[in-house]
Design a binder for these strands. Structure first.
Length: 763
DNA sequence: TGCCGTTGTCATGTC
DNA sequence: CGGACATGACAACGG
């Protein structure tokens, strides 16, 4: 039956899609709103009452049959779950959807080379050739993606994803998919085609399974689903890239941007050679600018990533989704798109150590592996550069500053081609910047080590779950028509078993054996109740019109309790519900065994029926204590019945309380998650601003350096001879004056307190 | 078969 | 003091 149901469902969906493809519009919703329970159940699976989305307040907002019970709260619920998973990844940086797009750029350059080169001159300029080379070198499964078979498979994946609303995740899981194909090869395609596709997949290690980086062993996000539908997305990616790097200078070096983020993200892959094409792409006279640009890019990417956390779309999630099964170690860092790019890119380039030496210094953890595996010189040499750049205090905000230390680190050769042996005065600004830089680095490092892929993978899973929500638990749906009929025709077995339950049920605590017995005898009841209460919930508002007492339920507690008992008391309910009530009352032993799966639904209701409690569990649970006592007084109940009723009330209330408690927890987590996202966004913005400041400072420093050289070269002593730069330096005083001082004095000042020996000329 | 998420339940504390 | 509620903990169950 389950098989048949799934077959029917998928067949219907396929048929609908086919009809829509040939121009015949099929409005499934119309059919679904026609209140044809069997069809509805078949198509939609068990109602949301059977799913685990029973957030009471949501359910109560449903407006009868007109609205599909899953349409609202399921979305909300899965959104909630997605957010919850994001919260669970709070300590990680989210995978930037942008980065996936960037990866797409790489891939598209192969598949849609013309498009790439045309739509993105900025990228092609610097990146086009290298990307080609990189892709040629690329040994990862991605390179296979451009094969024709992969396209077919990719289309097939998308097709099946569209078809099988419930198989979204499995589509991207090779093993699952394989299993699925083995289990029901005849559902969607012929076995031959299945085998063919399988062979294709095996041969190319394609996207069905999360590909693994051959070098690092890291999981590689699948891009398949995206690439097939994103030939258009290339331009969007480029726009995103451009938006990510809004600085004019950076816009000239998109390749550097990409490479930088790659190199960072790939830190954990020691086997990959660290190299960057920066050296050839960037002006050699401004290596520091490269560094800042690159870090700006990183920051910008992070920011954008943070910005897009809230707006993660399924597409984005697909990329992360491929990150399989959460390798939780630092290697997961490389699981997001960037990392996958990094491998090929870094293979033929040599990392920039000349351009971002301080980076290596400041981010020892980040580039640790890189430094170990490459011939990067000791980063110490470049460290002073950063500090000196940071210390470019032209406004003499911090008092007199040694301009030599700032602008002329190597006074020996008298040129600005710095070597870093010159000790520089400890500059407060420099210290601040260094510290902040280190903080940023640590944050980056943390983000890198925490890894993104897991979060996104879980996100994707949730997204796909939302897609598959229609078929949730369909495998054991108790709502099959046949079972319904069977239960309808069954006799009141509960009465026959009432003696068995009269004692234990009164106590309210049932042993497993008792439960098992109950299920054996009454499982059909419970199995059907699930379906039944679902329908009750669907028509809850309507019922309230007939039974005002039900309103108190929504007033008191928003959580939805099974209303089947309430129905059982009111046979005048709508036809469907009435039939269900009758069936419910006349539960049968003849129920199919699969209905026993629902044994946990409303045990108390079964007990109440067994004990012949004359009113519904809803009343028992939700009536105010006064009315509840009145109700008890009205009926003459024995001790067992009273005990059971009290237990039912206690358990019911506690059940609602537990639901509310969990929901509150969830809400709290979501709230915290929002706060974290806001903070992340702020952090990204601040980091970006900081990088802008750093860049600005460096630019000013360069200007000052040039000015310094110009001024120094024009200085002459009394005899008209130029001052040797190795012996003299300019000093910037607090009053804005510039002094030329012997270096010995300057060095002494650095060690002691500055004692302002104004020696020579003032300028 | 073990893991994990969900749900119901109990015990306990608080209001 | 009893009832309602909140919550941690546990077990059962299903995927």
């Amino acid at each position: 039956m389950l098989y048949l149901k799934k077959y029917f469902t998928e067949g219907l969906i396929q048929f609908t899609i086919l009809l829509s493809l040939i121009g015949v519009r099929v409005d499934v919703d119309t059919y679904l709103s026609n209140q044809l329970p069997p069809l509805r159940e078949i198509i939609l699976g068990p109602s949301s009452a059977y799913t685990q989305t029973q957030f009471h307040n949501l359910r109560n907002t449903l407006d009868g049959y007109g609205i599909h019970p899953k349409s609202v709260d399921l979305d909300h619920f899965f959104t909630t779950r997605r957010l919850l998973n994001q919260v669970r990844q709070l300590d990680r940086l989210s995978v930037p959807s942008t980065e996936l797009n960037t990866w797409l750029v790489h891939r598209e350059t192969e598949t849609v080379v013309s498009t790439s080169s045309q739509s993105s001159p900025s990228i092609t300029l610097d990146n086009g050739a290298s990307l080609e080379d990189i892709n040629n070198i690329d040994s990862t499964p991605f390179s296979c993606c451009h094969k024709k078979e992969n396209d077919i498979d990719l289309i097939d994946i998308l097709w099946r994803q569209d078809i099988d609303l419930g198989a979204g995740r499995e589509v991207f899981n090779y093993s699952n998919r394989q299993k699925e194909s083995e289990e029901k090869p005849s559902l969607l395609e012929s076995k031959d085609r299945n085998e063919e596709r399988e062979s294709l997949r095996n041969g190319i290690n394609l996207q069905g399974a999360p590909p693994v980086d051959g070098e690092t062993g890291e999981s590689i996000p699948e891009q398949v689903c995206l690439s097939s539908q994103t030939s258009l997305s290339l331009q969007e990616c480029l726009r995103l890239l451009e938006a990510t790097f809004p600085f004019g200078e950076e816009a000239e070096f998109p390749a550097a941007d990409v490479t930088e983020e790659i190199s960072v993200s790939n830190e954990e892959a020691p086997s990959t050679s660290q190299s960057l094409p920066l050296g050839s792409q960037l002006p050699g006279d401004e290596p520091q600018l490269d560094l800042e640009q690159q870090w700006q890019d990183i920051m910008a990417i992070m920011e954008l990533q943070a910005m897009e956390v809230n707006t993660t779309d399924p597409q984005t999630d697909f990329s992360s989704a491929s990150a399989p099964n959460g390798t939780t170690d630092a290697n997961t860092v490389a699981n997001f798109g960037l990392a996958t790019r990094s491998t090929p890119i870094n293979e033929d380039v040599s990392l920039h150590q000349a351009s971002i030496p301080s980076c290596s210094q400041d981010f020892p953890q980040i580039f640790n592996s890189q430094l170990d595996s490459t011939s990067i010189p000791p980063p110490r040499a470049s460290m002073p550069r950063l500090s000196s750049s940071n210390s470019s205090n032209i406004n003499s905000t911090f008092g007199a500053t040694n301009l030599t230390g700032i602008f002329l680190p190597p006074p020996i050769n008298g040129s600005s081609s710095n070597i870093t042996s010159t000790p520089t005065l400890p500059d407060p600004f420099a210290t601040l910047l260094e510290e902040s830089m280190l903080d940023e680095i640590s944050l980056l490092d943390l983000a890198m080590e925490e890894g993104f892929s897991q979060a996104q993978a879980s996100q994707l899973e949730d997204e796909l779950d939302s897609d598959s929500g229609l078929s949730l638990d369909s495998s054991h749906s108790p709502a099959s028509p046949s079972s319904s009929e069977t239960s309808c025709s069954s006799a009141a077995s509960s009465s026959s078993t009432s003696a068995t339950f009269s004692e234990e049920g009164a106590v309210g605590y049932s042993t497993d054996s008792e439960v098992a017995t109950a299920e054996t005898e009454e499982g059909a009841v419970g199995g059907y109740q699930s379906e039944y209460s679902k329908l009750c919930r669907m028509s809850y508002q309507d019922l309230s019109q007939f039974h005002p007492q039900l309103d108190s339920i929504s007033h008191n507690h928003t959580y939805n309790l099974p209303l089947s008992s309430a129905f059982s008391e009111h046979p005048e309910l709508p036809l469907t519900a009435g039939k269900k009530t009758i069936r419910d009352k006349h539960s049968s032993k003849l129920q199919p065994p699969q209905d026993l799966l629902d044994k946990h639904s409303s045990r108390d209701e079964r007990r109440a029926r067994t004990m012949k409690i004359p009113f519904s569990n809803e009343k028992i649970i939700n009536l105010p204590v006064d009315e509840f006592n009145e109700l008890l007084a009205k009926h003459h109940l024995n001790e067992a019945q009273l005990a059971l009723i009290r237990d039912i009330r206690r358990r019911g209330k506690n059940k609602m309380a537990a639901q509310n408690c969990r929901k509150r927890k969830l809400d709290a987590i979501i709230t915290l998650e929002q706060g974290v996202q806001d903070l992340r966004r702020d952090k990204a913005r601040l980091l970006k601003e900081k990088m802008e400041f750093l860049r600005s400072i460096r630019q000013m420093k360069h200007k000052m350096q040039s000015l310094y050289q110009e001024v120094f070269s024009q200085l002459r002593d009394e005899e008209g001879r130029p001052y040797p730069p190795s012996q003299y330096s300019l000093q910037y005083s607090a009053d804005g004056s510039v002094l030329i001082m012997p270096r010995s004095v300057t060095a002494a000042e650095q060690n002691r307190k500055p004692e302002k020996k104004q020696k020579d000329k003032k300028k």
